[in-house]
Amino acid sequence: MQNDSVIIANKLTKKFGHFTAVDAITFDVRKGEIFGFLGANGAGKTTAIKMMCGLSRPTAGEATVAGFDVNTQPNEIKKHIGYMSQHFSLYQDMTIRENIRFYGGIYGLRGKVIKQRREELIAELGIEEYANRRVEELPLGWKQKLAFSIAIIHEPEIVFLDEPTSGVDPITRRQFWNMIYEAAERGITVFVTTHYLEEAEYCNRVSIMVDGQLRDLDTPKALMDKYHKKNMNDVFVQLASTSTRTE
């Protein structure tokens, strides 16, 4: 374990009755890293993310996120992370400016700061003409880019992205990943799940979950070499096909 790790999980486990959703996973994520968290549906990704976001208490094991313990300091964790889900995390019936102000507000930013970041953000995304229109009028790709910008408006140490690019066209997805790189360069750690395996190759390191266990964790290149595959898709299919869980 390195000192600059922002997430350290040690035998993190979550059971629901007799079902072990997450089975003693151990890993660490370094500061500024883009960490891919892969797994088939039902592999336990969402449960693991919930524990790391302070939403769900582990049954066993421990983890620290941004230096805070998931068992005892979930509220501190929440202040230091950002989160964006596959669902639209924006309020469709509110304008872009109102959405930004709301998220800034619930993270306790001061009015002046919100205003300044809001205008910067609108200018960066080039959506001045939409700024006072409702989010529902915005094209899907822009909605997701906006949602990402808002998820890091309070400059969190880590941002969790749960399938952020599902349903987005390839060009927008590319732009989205550029935004992720920029965030990582600014020192924000990115923890991302995706079902698009070519995106996994953009990550610094990738972990693959199968049946609640962390089956492997390394750089995409090392994983491809290890399993003698040409791309991450084949690596994923080989590992995921060992699953004995039925959905």
Partner: peptide
């Protein structure tokens, strides 16, 4: 239904 509640749960709001 819209999924926005996840954002509220994840936020520091009590």
């Amino acid at each position: 239904e819209l999924g926005t509640i996840e954002i509220l749960y994840v936020s520091p709001l009590k």
